[in-house]
Design a protein around this nucleic acid. Structure first.
Length: 486
RNA sequence: GGCCUUAUCGUCUAACGGUUAGGACACUGGGUUUUCAUCCCAGCAAUCCGGGUUCGAUUCCCGGUAAGGUCACCA
């Protein structure tokens, strides 16, 4: 069976990682059944609209390497894919519902509704909900109000004393007492539909077979089921996904702990492949021990039956870092260099290729690759390859017994290195000669080499020392050693 | 508060009545090593509590506890 899924972001903010996770699952389901993924912009809230949010949403989805089959930019049989451009459709269906007796006009003011809620709360009623005041209006009264132009909304008429059955593919059959459900507003007084109406109408019209969404929508599902029933439509399959939470916390993701928007992770230097791989496990698990997954493999292995039933899935940032390091290490150096350049130019500045020469940089990357966890770390990890480091002489005592001893070591090795002919300046040769030299002065390897490392690189951790010397060359190495003596 | 849901190593999760309760991350120890890292080996450590059902419960049922979601003219 072909599965048609949909992602319906609302341009009230940036795309969240949780949304991207849902999209990833949508994508897998659609692809593995040769179905379609529909992208629909749910811009029915004019007050919270954020300028440019939908363009950025489309961009970040593409940046993650995902795509959609119908929707903005690509079009499709149910155009337009912006709900704000489909107002007449929703209105038509809302009126149909009124005519069939499943919905009704309501002319109550905001003030009355607020007062009502307040009273209900004061009385400590189990649920606060609309009192169906306008349901008792006669047909004539309604028409009179409409003619006079009194603002109105259209509400769903929720039946009393019924058990509404919802079937979720992850959680199974659930029942909700209809008495707890409010007479939900379907059409707002500004002529825009609410989410509840728009989502049901569009999902039906667009032939969506599976609705994947966060668990926070579960309590709204019976309202949607009621709507499908009222329209006489067959409801799609519901699949509610675990929400995301911080590790060691029962709370939702928080900006205080790190990035939460999908785009920010790219800015932090994470690779889309690693991000996707990480997100696959945010609520799903193959039940095997495999955990490195390409998108193609995931499309093949993903199944609804393996989605977690637990309330929330933990967003383990440490694990994400591990995934990213893994992908960086397994990538070809050339490919990695291209990514570093793109990242650098997108988030920092145009790269100066006079300084960052490609051939040299590939060799640098070869050395630091296994130490890099994010693209953003490239600069910190490699600056001493490209620029003379700042050397704080007081730090020499961390590696050598005294400053004088450190200077003596540097001076002696300088003698050695000056006398190595340029054509013999190779890693193996440097390694061999430097080790032999230890015994001449009775130096301990650690003391001598750490001192040289700090004198030439300005940091205490680098790739193997003679790889570094070999790469920066005889002239630069000796010049840095000289500088450190001044 | 009502409704709905969830509960396994420190962390994230597997195991859909019978396993020495598996893996990964983190951590610890060891090997490789001049440092950092990588890589390899090893170690550590868990079924929320109380009742049932069953020959047998992590698994099924009930209760408790704890946690989360939701109760808008927002999505």
């Amino acid at each position: 069976m072909k599965i048609r899924t949909r992602l319906a972001p609302s341009p009230t903010g940036e795309i969240h990682v949780g949304t991207m996770r849902t999209l990833l699952y949508d994508y897998a389901l659609a692809k593995q059944t040769s179905g379609e993924l529909i992208l629909r912009i749910e811009d029915t809230d004019r007050e919270r609209y954020v300028e440019g949010a939908e363009e950025r949403a489309l961009k970040v989805i593409e940046d993650y390497g995902l795509s959609w089959d119908e929707g903005p930019k690509v079009g499709g049989p149910q155009e337009p894919y912006f709900q704000s451009q489909r107002l007449d459709i929703y209105k038509k269906y809302a009126i149909e519902l009124v005519e069939k007796g499943f919905a009704y006009y309501c002319f109550c003011t905001q003030e009355r509704l607020e007062k009502l809620r307040e009273e209900q709360r004061k009385e400590k009623l189990a649920v606060t909900k609309y009192d169906k005041h306008c349901l008792s209006l006669t047909k004539e009264e309604v028409e009179k109000n409409l003619k006079e132009g009194i603002p109105y909304v259209i509400r769903l008429k929720v039946p009393s004393n019924e058990e509404i059955e919802v079937e979720d593919l992850v959680l199974g059959k659930l029942t909700f007492p209809s008495n707890d459900i409010d007479d939900q507003v379907l059409m707002k007084s500004d002529g825009f539909p609410t989410y509840h109406l728009a989502v049901v109408v569009d999902d039906h019209l667009m032939n969506i077979t599976h609705i994947l969404r966060g668990r926070e929508w579960l309590p709204s599902t019976p309202k949607h089921v009621l709507l499908y029933k009222a329209f006489g439509w067959r409801p799609p399959k519901f699949v509610h996904l675990p929400l995301l939470r911080e590790v060691n916390s029962t709370k939702k993701l928080s900006k205080r702990t790190g990035s939460v928007n999908a785009a920010d992770f790219l800015k932090d230097g994470y690779l889309p492949e690693a991000l996707l791989n990480f997100m696959m496990f945010l609520g799903w698990n193959p039940g095997t021990e495999k955990e490195i997954y390409s998108l193609e493999e995931f499309v093949k292995d993903f199944s609804i039956g393996k989605i977690q039933t637990s309330e929330m899935a933990a967003f383990d940032r440490q694990k994400l870092l591990w995934f990213n390091g893994m992908y960086i290490r397994n990538m070809s150096t050339e490919e990695l260099w291209n990514k570093v350049v793109l990242w650098h130019e997108r988030y920092l500045e145009k790269m100066d290729f006079g300084k960052y020469k490609k051939e040299f940089s590939l060799k640098v990357l070869d050395l630091v690759k296994e130490r890099m966890k994010t693209l953003a770390e490239f600069n910190d990890l490699t600056s001493y390859f490209y620029f003379k480091p700042f050397v704080d002489k007081s730090k020499f005592i961390e590696f050598s017994v005294s400053l004088d001893k450190a200077k003596e070591i540097i001076k002696n090795y300088l003698d050695l290195y000056r006398n190595i002919p340029s054509e013999e300046w190779t890693k193996d040769n440097l390694d061999k000669l430097s080790h032999e030299y230890l015994s001449k002065y009775n130096y301990k390897p650690k003391e001598a080499f750490m001192t040289l490392r700090y004198a030439t690189c300005g940091v205490s951790f680098t790739p193997p020392l003679f790889d570094v010397f070999n790469l920066i060359g005889k002239e630069e190495t000796t010049s840095r050693l000289e500088d450190s003596l001044r």
